[in-house]
Amino acid sequence: MKKLFFLSFIFLAITGSSPRIFAQDEMLIDSIRNEMSVDTSWKKKIEFGANLNQGSFSSNWTGGAVNSIAVGGHLNAVLRYEKGKDSWRNDFQAQYGVVRNQGQESRKSVDRLFFDTKYGRSISEHWSLIGGVNFLSQFTDGFDYGESAAGNPERRKVSGFLAPAFLTESIGFEYNPTDYFFLTFSPGAVRHTFVTDLDLYKTFPKNYGVPIGQRVRTEVALMQLIADFDKEVAKNLNLKFRYTIFANIKQLNAIDHRLDVNLTAKINKYWNVNLGAIVIYDQDQSLAVQFAQSLSIGFLYIF
Rank of each mutant, 00 (worst) to 15 (best):
I130M: 08
Y243E: 08
V158D: 12
K240W: 01
L198Q: 05
G172N: 01
L252S: 07
N152L: 13
D197R: 12
A189G: 03
A165E: 08
G146Q: 07
E174M: 11
G151M: 09
S170N: 05
F229S: 01
P177T: 08
L222S: 07
L239N: 04
R156V: 15
R217N: 07
Q138T: 06
R217G: 01
D141P: 07
A165Y: 15
P211V: 15
G146T: 15
A149D: 09
R215P: 00
E147W: 05
L183F: 12
I130W: 01
I245R: 00
T140C: 04
A234C: 00
F241Y: 12
N238S: 15
L225V: 15
A247K: 02
D230M: 07
I226L: 04
P205L: 04
A150W: 05
L167I: 11
F185W: 08
E219Y: 10
Y201D: 12
Y201C: 04
N238I: 11
F181Q: 11
G172T: 04
A149S: 14
V195I: 02
V158G: 07
K235Q: 03
P153H: 03
G132A: 15
R217E: 05
D230N: 11
F194K: 12
P177A: 03
E232M: 03
A247M: 14
F182T: 08
D228P: 00
A189K: 07
G213V: 08
I249A: 00
A247F: 09
F166N: 03
M223Y: 01
S159K: 14
T193S: 13
A221K: 06
G160W: 11
Y243T: 11
T140R: 11
Q214K: 13
G146P: 14
V210F: 04
E174T: 03
Q138V: 13
H192V: 11
V190Y: 06
V216N: 09
N176T: 08
R191C: 02
A165D: 09
K240S: 05
V190K: 05
L237C: 02
N238Q: 14
F246A: 05
